[in-house]
Amino acid sequence: MTFAFDNSFHRTMEGFYAACEPDAASKPELVAFNDALAAELGLDRSGVSDAELAALLSGAALPDGAQPIALTYAGHQFGQFNPQLGDGRAHLLGEIVAPDARRFDIQLKGSGRTPYSRGGDGKAALGPVLREYLVSEAMHALGIPTTRSLAAVKTGDGVFREVFLPGAVLTRVAASHIRVGTFAYFAAHHGADAVRQLSDHAIARHYPAAADATNPYLAFFEAVVEAQAALIARWMQVGFVHGVMNTDNCSIAGETIDYGPCAFLDRYAADTVFSSIDRQGRYAFGNQPGIARWNMHRLAEALAGAVHAIGG
């Protein structure tokens, strides 16, 4: 299956990622493949066996043109700034341009250690992989902006999470994997020039109209705020609880990303939480609009130097 990669982030954003390859799954087995999404992306699987797909989408073999990287970012986790996070168990294989001219990241999640793993094994268990596959596709069916799931593959390797569990890799499709935490990292460590470079890339990719504004970086910020507000409003309409709205789980593309302890309400209760470590209810269902606003304040802080360099 040909992906026809056009890897703009790898090509133009050196220093914003670490090049690294996924681990090779020992015995990949295809569990699910999203044929409808593949068709949207212009991917032709005719003549490609399940075994070949499993190898390509598990790290056992790399598709032609893939340039795997792990992205660098920071994050405000439960309100506290962690200055160094990054993709600790995911490899961005590259970008493809769909027949309708939209650009998408193709990422393997649960594919092994990266320079940002911080002692973790970089792997994922089958249960969480299937949960993200199902919930992200349900959100898409509900018309809510979200990352998508192209495939779930069992690796044939075990992962230890209190007990041994079957390992798996999710192939995630996103408009991009640039997060509020990405801006926070480069603002904290590299200053306004790096933030401007990242902003220019994000503007060109997601909000091209902002490039024509008097202050493109302010216009970019306003566009992200609008996208986040629209996204959270849709969450609230369907009773979706993200669970962990840290800034590293907040996409500047306005998509739902990183399905961890998420769920839908069975009955309305504003104080419902779905993270076992959220003991104070910071990310409770009813708090989500306020947390989205808090996250946008953190983006504003990261962009401040770039905005004020132009004026506005």
Rank of each mutant, 00 (worst) to 15 (best):
residue 1 M to E: 03
residue 2 T to A: 03
residue 4 A to E: 13
residue 5 F to S: 07
residue 6 D to C: 01
residue 7 N to E: 03
residue 10 H to A: 02
residue 18 A to K: 04
residue 19 A to W: 11
residue 20 C to T: 13
residue 22 P to N: 07
residue 25 A to Q: 01
residue 25 A to M: 12
residue 26 S to V: 02
residue 29 E to W: 00
residue 30 L to H: 10
residue 33 F to L: 04
residue 35 D to K: 03
residue 37 L to Q: 15
residue 44 D to W: 06
residue 45 R to F: 10
residue 49 S to R: 03
residue 55 A to E: 04
residue 56 L to Q: 00
residue 56 L to T: 01
residue 57 L to D: 02
residue 59 G to W: 01
residue 61 A to N: 06
residue 62 L to P: 08
residue 65 G to I: 08
residue 67 Q to W: 14
residue 67 Q to N: 15
residue 69 I to G: 06
residue 73 Y to W: 07
residue 75 G to P: 06
residue 80 Q to L: 13
residue 80 Q to M: 14
residue 86 G to I: 08
residue 87 D to K: 00
residue 90 A to W: 02
residue 92 L to R: 05
residue 97 V to F: 06
residue 99 P to S: 09
residue 99 P to Q: 07
residue 99 P to V: 10
residue 101 A to H: 02
residue 101 A to F: 08
residue 110 G to W: 07
residue 112 G to R: 05
residue 112 G to V: 01
residue 116 Y to F: 11
residue 121 D to K: 00
residue 130 L to N: 03
residue 132 E to K: 01
residue 133 Y to E: 05
residue 140 H to Y: 11
residue 141 A to R: 09
residue 143 G to V: 15
residue 144 I to M: 07
residue 144 I to H: 09
residue 146 T to Q: 08
residue 151 A to N: 15
residue 152 A to V: 01
residue 156 G to H: 14
residue 156 G to S: 11
residue 157 D to Q: 14
residue 158 G to Y: 12
residue 160 F to Y: 12
residue 162 E to K: 14
residue 169 V to N: 11
residue 169 V to F: 03
residue 170 L to K: 02
residue 172 R to C: 10
residue 173 V to H: 04
residue 176 S to I: 05
residue 176 S to T: 11
residue 178 I to R: 00
residue 182 T to R: 04
residue 187 A to M: 01
residue 190 H to S: 15
residue 190 H to K: 06
residue 200 D to F: 00
residue 201 H to T: 02
residue 202 A to C: 11
residue 204 A to E: 14
residue 210 A to P: 00
residue 214 T to V: 08
residue 221 F to N: 01
residue 222 E to H: 14
residue 222 E to G: 06
residue 227 A to C: 13
residue 230 A to K: 09
residue 231 L to D: 12
residue 238 V to R: 08
residue 238 V to W: 15
residue 241 V to M: 07
residue 245 M to L: 15
residue 246 N to S: 04
residue 249 N to R: 13
residue 250 C to G: 04
residue 252 I to S: 00
residue 253 A to H: 00
residue 257 I to V: 08
residue 258 D to Q: 11
residue 259 Y to W: 11
residue 260 G to N: 06
residue 263 A to V: 06
residue 264 F to W: 06
residue 266 D to P: 11
residue 266 D to S: 12
residue 269 A to R: 12
residue 270 A to N: 09
residue 277 I to R: 09
residue 282 R to T: 12
residue 283 Y to F: 14
residue 284 A to Q: 07
residue 286 G to Y: 10
residue 287 N to W: 11
residue 289 P to I: 01
residue 295 N to S: 04
residue 295 N to C: 02
residue 296 M to W: 08
residue 297 H to N: 04
residue 297 H to F: 14
residue 304 A to L: 11
residue 306 A to S: 08
residue 308 H to T: 03
residue 309 A to F: 07
